[in-house]
Nucleic acid binder design. Structure first.
Length: 303
DNA sequence: GGTAGACCTGGACGC
DNA sequence: GCGTCCAGGTCTACC
């Protein structure tokens, strides 16, 4: 099966793929040319497929060697559109950014979209695995989780889809801590999987909200943030990070990196607080997370 | 609401 | 090679 997804213009697959580090995390794998990527996906009917995503003007071309029925085809198209954010519209952000020299590049570079996983569940787990560790630690933990509990690809059993909540809900705590080495995060991930698998928690409902698809927030950010913070292992940083994925850009994920960037940009390298970071981007209102993310940082130019 | 200490791992560093 | 220290967010207990 193959199909082309046309995105709301402007769109550039390279920009989305390299928008942040997600493409380095299983079950993504970056193509050698650095433009497109492969992704192993578990469909609702239990089938595990691999898809290859390549660039076309203002869109992406998707191919999978697996034959799919009508329902599976629709699911694949919807999940791919979500991963790439093809329906997102950044016209207002570009208009605001054009007035700021440090953001004047965003429209020309078609920046705004961030690569997402196929499910909100997967993005929550991965975000928890970014906390209190190094990026190499995040890659290692994600790889371990996918290999230990992911469903194998029939044509290549060495590759796996990201574990479904149902599979992860049955995980052994000793394996999560000892083999996968999630450490103290293991109970957080296990509890999340069990709550989602049992139906108690509908995190995919956050994804299908019109606001998240269009990029225009309708559910108040404060309400969604409250629900995210109620998840074990999700604190202020992780909640803000996940809000971005869900189309809410009015909160900044302040981590040690953000403190370093703002310190260099406006405080001559002196220590800054979370409030300083938030104050620096407050004027960007509903776009402040994107303004922060795509800012032309002095620190990056100097290092 | 704010703060301190614990959590866990890998990497850097000194010996 | 070994031991120690530190960085990285969140949780819990406490004030």
């Amino acid at each position: 099966m193959q199909f082309t997804l046309q995105a709301k213009s402007p769109f550039n697959l390279v920009t989305v793929t390299n928008s942040h580090g997600w493409v380095q995390l299983a079950p993504f794998s970056l193509h050698e040319d650095g433009v497109g990527f492969d992704y192993v996906m578990a469909l609702d009917d239990g089938k595990v497929i691999e898809m290859s995503v390549t660039a076309v003007p203002d869109g992406a071309h998707i191919t999978t060697p697996t034959e799919l029925n009508t329902a599976a085809q629709a699911e694949l198209k919807a999940k791919t559109a979500w991963i790439l954010g093809t329906e997102q519209d950044f016209t207002e952000f570009y208009a605001a950014a054009a007035q700021e020299p440090k953001l004047a590049h965003v429209q020309a570079k078609t920046q705004g979209r961030l690569l997402r996983s196929a499910t909100v569940f997967e993005d929550i787990v991965k975000t928890i695995l970014t906390t209190n560790t190094t990026w190499t630690g995040t890659i290692r933990m994600t790889d371990g989780l996918v290999q230990a509990y992911g469903q194998p690809l029939p044509d290549d059993p060495a590759r796996f889809a990201f574990p479904t909540p149902e599979r992860l809900a049955k995980a052994d705590m000793d394996v999560l801590q000892g083999t996968v080495k999630l450490g103290y995060r293991a109970p957080y991930v296990l509890e999340l999987a069990q709550r989602v698998a049992s139906g108690e928690l509908d995190v995919e409902g956050w994804k299908t909200a019109p606001s998240a698809i269009s990029g225009q927030a309708v559910i108040p950010t404060a309400e969604l943030r409250k629900q995210l913070l109620a998840l074990k292992g999700v604190g202020p940083y992780a909640a803000a990070h996940l809000l971005i994925f869900l189309g809410h850009y009015d909160a900044i994920p302040v981590d040690s990196w953000a403190l370093k960037l703002v310190s260099t940009e406006w405080y001559d390298g002196q220590p800054v607080s979370k409030k300083d970071v938030e104050a620096a981007f407050e004027k960007w209102g509903q776009w402040q997370a994107l303004a922060y993310w795509f800012w032309d940082w002095q620190y990056l130019q100097n290092n």
